[in-house]
Design a protein around this nucleic acid. Structure first.
Length: 508
RNA sequence: GGCCGAUUCGUCUAGCGGUUAGGACACCGCCCUUUCACGGCGGUAACACGGGUUCGAUUCCCGUAUCGGUCACCA
C-alpha cells in the first residue's frame, strides 16, 4: 500500500531560479498532481555565505507565474514547518548528535589548512582519492583519534568542530532510481562527509535527508548533479534508522548548452540573447539585471510546454499540452536519461502556438502599452483589431506593435524597388479613382465593404486588380509586404487612408 | 584522473528483437495569397564504433570512443 505521494521542490535562495530548476519543479508538480499527491516548497538556506536577499520571494513568484501551485511549505504553511532550513537548525543538530552517540558519526577538529595539507599529501602519494575517509580519518584530529577527555575539553572550550559521517569502509550501496534503474556504488568511494558544519548548521546532505523524512516525502525528484551523492543519502537514511520509509529517487537529465560542451549557464543566455531565468532579476549587490522569460514575452503555458518536452515525451505525436493535459499524460518512467540541449528556437515556436490562441482582448493591452511608450495613443478597439490582424504572424506580443508600424505611422518614404517595379500609370490611376470613390464613401468603414468598393472602382476603370494591388499597398504603407490590406485600411480609418493616398500621389 | 551516468536526423524525441526507423523544431521546395507572413503538402537528414548473444539486432551483453555529472565546513 503506497502512501500518499508527497514531493518537494527544495531550492537554495542564492539568486534567481535557473530555468533547469523550474523544470525540476515542474516535473515534481506534474508527478504530484498525476498521483493525487502534494507538492511542497522547502527553502534550503543552510549556507549563510551564499544567502541573497530577495531570492526566496523570486522563487515563489516564479513558481506562481509558471502555474505551479504549492500545497504545503514556505509561503503557504503546513503541519511540518518551518519550511526554511535555517529555522530548523536544532532539529538537524539533534540528529547529528544522535549519530555521534550511536557511533555512526564523529567530531572532527581539523582546520582548513590541515585538511588542505592532508589532500596535498595524498595527491603527492598518488592516492586514488584524496579524501577524508575510513583510512585517512585515523591520521586526523577527531573524536576517533583523540581521547574522550581531549574531545570534551576542545568542545567545552568552544573550539570549532564539525560532525562527520563515519562512512563504512567496505559496503555496497544500492539505489533503485525511478529513471535510471539500479545504481551501485561502493562505500569506499564515499568520503566522511561533513554533516554539521562548524557554524552549527547542517550541510545539504543531512538537512535534506532529515527534512525529507520528517516531511513525509515519498519521492525525491531532482537534477542529475545529485546522483553521485545519492548513495550517501541512502547510507544516511540507513544510519538514521529510516531506511524502511526512504523515499524513491528520480534523477533528472540536465539541460545542456545550445551548442558546445557543458550544462546550460547564465553565460550561454547572454551569448545567445535569450533568457535563462523565468523572471527578470536584478542582482541586489551588483545591480546587474538578467532578463527573464516573462519580461521577454514568453507566455507561461508556452514555457511549461517547452520545458516539459525537454527530457520527457508522452510517446504520442501530440505536441501542444496544457498543464492539465501534461498532468494527465505525465509518466516519470518515460523521462529520457540523457541531457537535453536547450534550443530557444523551439521555445519561440511554442510561444507562437500559444500566442495565436490568445483572445484579441488579452493581447490588446500589450499593444496599447507599447504604443504609449512610443508616444502614441491607441484605443482598445484599435489594439484588439491589430492583435487579430497580426497575432498569427508573430511569436511575441511585443511584436504586434513592431509588426504593426504601418498601422501607426503615415509613410514618410516609399520602398524604391517596389516603386520602380509597380508604380506606373495604371497604379496612379487606380489610386486616384479609389481615392475619389472613398471621398463619397459613407457607412461603416470596414474591410469587406472597402474590398467591394475597391474592386468595383477598379472594374469601372478597366484596371486589373492584380496588376495594381502592390502599388496600392505601397501607396498606403510605403512598403511592398504586410498583412491584409483591407483590414489595414479599416484599422487606420478612412481619413488616414485618404491622407495617405493623396500623399502617395504627390510623392511617388 | 577516480567514481557514476548517458549515446537515434543539426536540435528535442518515438522506438522497449523482425518498422519503408515515426513525429516536432530548424532548413529546402511546392501550394494558398494582390504582397509578406500564417497555414497546407512534400523533401533533405539519424541508430557513435567494434565484438558477442540470436534465425534476426537501433533494441540485450561486453569493450572502445565521445559527451555529461561529481569528487567542499556549496547546494
Amino acid at each position: 500500500m503506497q502512501d500518499t505521494v508527497r514531493v518537494r521542490f527544495a531550492p537554495s535562495p542564492t539568486g534567481p531560479l535557473h530555468i533547469g530548476g523550474v523544470r525540476t519543479a515542474l516535473y515534481n508538480y506534474l508527478f504530484a498532481r498525476k498521483n493525487g499527491g502534494k507538492m511542497l516548497l522547502r527553502i534550503e538556506d543552510t549556507d549563510q555565505n551564499r544567502f541573497v536577499p530577495g531570492a526566496e520571494d523570486y522563487i515563489i513568484e516564479a513558481l506562481s507565474w509558471i502555474g505551479i501551485q504549492i500545497d504545503e511549505g514556505q509561503g503557504v504553511g503546513g503541519p511540518h514547518g518551518p519550511y526554511r532550513q535555517s529555522e530548523r537548525a536544532a532539529i538537524y543538530r539533534a540528529e547529528a548528535l544522535r549519530l555521534v552517540e550511536e557511533g555512526k558519526a564523529y567530531y572532527a577538529f581539523d582546520t582548513a589548512e590541515e585538511l588542505d595539507e592532508m589532500r596535498k599529501r595524498l595527491e603527492a602519494a598518488n592516492a586514488p582519492a584524496a579524501q577524508y575517509n575510513a583510512i585517512t580519518r585515523m591520521q586526523m584530529k577527531n573524536s576517533l583519534t583523540l581521547s574522550a577527555d581531549e574531545v570534551q575539553t576542545r568542545i567545552d572550550s568552544g573550539a570549532p568542530y564539525v560532525i562527520r559521517l563515519k562512512t563504512p569502509r567496505k559496503e555496497e550501496v544500492r539505489l533503485n532510481d525511478l529513471i535510471r534503474g539500479w545504481v551501485n556504488v561502493h562505500s569506499s568511494a564515499i568520503d566522511d562527509k561533513v554533516l554539521l558544519k562548524s557554524d552549527g548548521l547542517p550541510t545539504y546532505h543531512l538537512a535534506n535527508v532529515v527534512d525529507d523524512h520528517l516531511m513525509g516525502i515519498t519521492h525525491v525528484i531532482r537534477g542529475e548533479e545529485w546522483l553521485p551523492s545519492a548513495p550517501l543519502h541512502v547510507l544516511l537514511y540507513r544510519y538514521l534508522g529510516w531506511e524502511d520509509t526512504m523515499p524513491r529517487f528520480a534523477h533528472l537529465p540536465l539541460l545542456l548548452k545550445p551548442e558546445g560542451n557543458g550544462k546550460l549557464s547564465k553565460r550561454d543566455a547572454e551569448l545567445g540573447g535569450f533568457p535563462v531565468f523565468p523572471l527578470q532579476w536584478q542582482d541586489p549587490f551588483t545591480g546587474n539585471v538578467a532578463r527573464g522569460f516573462r519580461e521577454d514575452g514568453y507566455l507561461p503555458e508556452a514555457l511549461v510546454n517547452f520545458l516539459a518536452f525537454l527530457g520527457w515525451n508522452p510517446g504520442t505525436e501530440q505536441e501542444l499540452f496544457t498543464m492539465d493535459e501534461l498532468i494527465e499524460a505525465f509518466d516519470i518512467e518515460q523521462i529520457h536519461k540523457a541531457g537535453a540541449r536547450f534550443d530557444i528556437v523551439k521555445a519561440t515556436w511554442f510561444n507562437h502556438q500559444y500566442l495565436r490562441q490568445q483572445p484579441n482582448a488579452g493581447l490588446a493591452p500589450a499593444v496599447i502599452r507599447q504604443a504609449e511608450a512610443a508616444g502614441l495613443t491607441c484605443s482598445t478597439e484599435k489594439a484588439e483589431k491589430i492583435a487579430g490582424l497580426l497575432k498569427e504572424r508573430v511569436n511575441f506580443a511585443h511584436e504586434l506593435f513592431t509588426e504593426g508600424q504601418t498601422l501607426f505611422y503615415t509613410p514618410d518614404s516609399y520602398d524604391q524597388a517596389v516603386a520602380t517595379a509597380k508604380w506606373n500609370d495604371d497604379a496612379r490611376k487606380a489610386v486616384t479613382f479609389f481615392r475619389e470613390a472613398l471621398l463619397s464613401f459613407d457607412g461603416a468603414f470596414e474591410a469587406d465593404v472597402i474590398k467591394h468598393t475597391l474592386s468595383d472602382t477598379l472594374q469601372q476603370a478597366g484596371i486589373k486588380q492584380g496588376k495594381v494591388m502592390q502599388a496600392m499597398r505601397l501607396a498606403l504603407t510605403g512598403v511592398g509586404a504586410g498583412p491584409d490590406l483591407m483590414m489595414t485600411m479599416e484599422i487606420i480609418g478612412r481619413d488616414e487612408v485618404l491622407h495617405r493616398l493623396s500623399l502617395a500621389l504627390e510623392k511617388l
